[in-house]
């Protein structure tokens, strides 16, 4: 097996120290969290780094903190396993639980972090799809202080985020879904060890049969995970009838920009986005009723 190319290694004790190190070494340093993406990519030469900055020793980054009515936040080193095991996430953010739970590799969940997954910016991330639908907001820290950004602004393009070379994502905040919200996560996948052809996450808030608020996130059907904003806008303020859902599903399919690759054709991805969007909306609405 190929050996990793030489690099130097740094374990900062604070976010500030990490940011300063990243500033000094510019694009030659890479942040290391779980390593499940970075290390294999470095091995095959798809990623190069003179320095790895392992953030595991920065205090507090692994915490998951539910603050009831306000929402929930978790740090950059919270592993997928610890998020999956969180009672607060299972109860109040079930689509995030589901998106993580269906990942088959126990090892990947013990090592990998949700923040690392977001920073890789793969359009096929089930975890990111759930986080888009939950309205995740990221805290990004650098030498000049911190900024907040929504996850959809953060994911700029295929494999590209808004993160500057000397910034790190330190925290993710999930607002608490309002009363009357139902949600669903679904993906189309050949086997659970594989990557999804399409994934969908929906969170819909209904009052008196009218859609008050809705987020529809689509994964693996465009260069980034994205929110189907035309579909959301069309649904908002409407009665959630069968017809409205069917129409919304079609609109969502039209909002995709899929590619053809070894897992699926672009046409199939577009069609299936419509099918999954409809099923996910129906399932989410059933939850509202229940």
């Amino acid at each position: 097996m190929r050996v990793l190319k030489p690099f130097d290694y740094f374990e900062p004790g604070t976010v500030k120290e990490a940011a300063q190190f990243l500033t000094t070494h510019g694009g030659k340093a890479q942040v290391l969290a779980g390593g499940i993406d970075l290390i294999p990519r470095m091995r095959i030469g798809k990623k190069e780094a003179d320095y790895l900055v392992n953030i595991r020793k920065i205090p507090g980054l692994e915490t998951i903190e539910a603050s009831g009515a306000n929402g929930l936040k978790f740090g950059a080193m919270a592993t997928l396993h610890s998020l999956e095991a969180s009672k607060a996430i299972q109860d109040d953010y079930p689509i995030l639980y589901k998106a993580i739970h269906q990942i088959s590799s126990v090892q990947a969940k013990n090592m990998g972090t949700a923040v690392g997954n977001i920073c890789v910016a793969t359009p096929a991330s089930d975890v990111a799809t759930a986080l888009f639908a939950l309205g995740a907001e990221l805290t990004i820290e650098g030498v000049d202080g911190e900024r907040k950004e929504s996850i959809q602004k953060f994911c700029v393009d295929y494999g590209r985020t808004s993160l500057k070379e000397n910034e790190i994502v330190t925290e993710v905040f999930l607002p608490r879904p309002p009363a009357g919200t139902g949600s669903a996560f679904m993906n189309l996948i050949r086997t659970h060890a594989d990557i999804a052809k399409v994934s969908i996450a929906v969170a819909i808030t209904v009052r008196d049969g009218v859609c008050e608020k809705v987020r529809i996130a689509v994964g693996a059907a465009a260069p980034t995970v994205f929110r189907a904003i035309k579909t959301e806008a069309a649904l908002k303020g409407q009665k959630v009838t069968h017809e409205a859902i069917n129409e919304a599903a079609e609109t969502a399919a039209g909002e995709t920009k899929p590619i053809t690759d070894l897992r699926s054709t672009a046409e199939y991805r577009r069609e299936m986005t419509g099918v999954l969007a409809r099923r996910a909306m129906e399932k989410a609405l059933q939850q509202v009723k229940a």
Binding site: G35, I39, P40, Q107, M111
Partner: peptide
């Protein structure tokens, strides 16, 4: 596989299964 796909390199670190091919010894 060296890519974190197969699980052949699994060892336990603090009791949890992880992939030793994708874990740095220094860490």
């Amino acid at each position: 596989c060296g890519a974190g796909e197969c699980g052949s390199c699994t060892v336990l670190v603090d009791g949890k299964p992880i992939l030793s091919c994708s874990t740095l010894a220094i860490a």
